[in-house]
């Protein structure tokens, strides 16, 4: 691989590992983004793109909802939509892509992806978009993916006798470490960093815990003799790491919560596992200064 093209993606600021180093191995890194992100700093070419509301374009959410965003304001001079930049570069490279608009791109998507067959901009511009499958026969989309109405078997819910045992129930590792998003740190945090109030909230967390933190439930903390702001060491089976305790009822008893921005800690504990979604059995001890 010689070149990498990143479209509104900022892996450097969110990765657990040294992506900046990996980016250095490419002969060409192109970043399309709204902002000067950490990733963009390593790019050879930065293509500034239009923002939401500055172009007519569609999005698909995790809820399968394909939505159309209308252009409401003029973009700053010189900015073009991301799709147009790709088309132009393709043109320079000899391809004959002839899309007059994002709607035309969507039309082609509809031809190749049957689930999107009915998702024309015209159709999407009504209601709050359509949920796929949105086919020519079912242009209103599909509200429930699994339901008797559409022939796909709905899920059956069965009661569980008692809660499944948490991974951490051994005596040595009585707590479960969970990694996740934090209220003021979302995805790659690009937008939060550009939002006055949210950025303040995020930076306050870091002022209170300058070296980062893990969250402990007050009851667990009490049992461990740990108070808010104390240094703690987290032991997993194969590794350990030090952090500061943030004691808060926001986390459940029995869990240790690590916000995603704690890259070092995640790296140390998760090691090669590299999977932030894993639940890791751990033990926490107060770290003597």
């Amino acid at each position: 691989m010689k070149a990498l093209w990143l479209c509104r993606y900022d892996p450097v600021s969110s990765s657990l590992f040294d992506l900046a180093g990996s980016l250095g191995q490419f002969e060409l890194v192109v970043v399309q983004h709204l902002f000067m992100t950490d990733t963009a700093k390593y790019a050879h070419v930065i293509l500034p793109t239009t923002a939401f509301g500055e172009e007519r374009v569609s999005f698909t959410s995790t809820e399968r909802r394909i939505q159309l965003a209308e252009q409401m304001v003029e973009p700053s001079p010189g900015l073009t939509p991301a799709w147009e930049q790709i088309v132009r570069v393709a043109g320079l490279m000899g391809a004959d892509w002839d899309y007059p608009s994002a709607a035309a791109v969507m039309e082609e998507i509809g031809e190749v992806v049957p689930f999107y067959g009915g998702a024309s901009y015209e159709n999407l511009s009504r209601e709050y978009g359509r949920q796929w499958p949105c086919t020519k026969d079912q242009p209103l989309g599909t509200r429930f993916l699994f339901s008797e109405d559409n022939g796909r078997k709905p899920f059956k819910f069965i009661p569980v006798p008692k809660p499944a045992p948490a991974p951490a129930s051994s005596k040595d590792f009585p707590l479960t470490l969970v990694c996740g998003s934090s209220l003021y740190y979302w995805n790659q945090n690009v937008l939060i960093r550009h939002s006055e109030a949210l950025r303040r909230e995020y930076s306050i967390l870091l002022i209170d815990y300058p070296e980062g933190f893990v969250e402990l439930n007050p009851e667990d903390a009490k049992g461990l003799g740990v108070r808010d702001g104390h240094k703690v060491r987290i032991y997993a089976e194969a590794a350990s790491a030090v952090s500061t305790a943030r004691v808060t009822a926001e986390v459940r008893k029995g869990t240790v919560f690590v916000p995603y921005f704690e890259h070092d800690l995640e790296r140390q504990i998760l090691g090669e596992r590299r999977d932030g979604s894993a639940l890791v059995p751990v033990r926490v001890e107060r770290e003597k200064a």
């Binding site: 006055e196 109030a197 303040r200 909230e201 306050i204 002022i207 209170d208």
Partner: peptide, 17 residues
């Protein structure tokens, strides 16, 4: 100046912490 919300903890937090 930007709208602010009293629900946020930074709304009242002072520089000293």
């Amino acid at each position: 100046r930007v709208w602010d919300a009293c629900a946020l903890s930074g709304f009242t937090r002072m520089a000293g912490g």
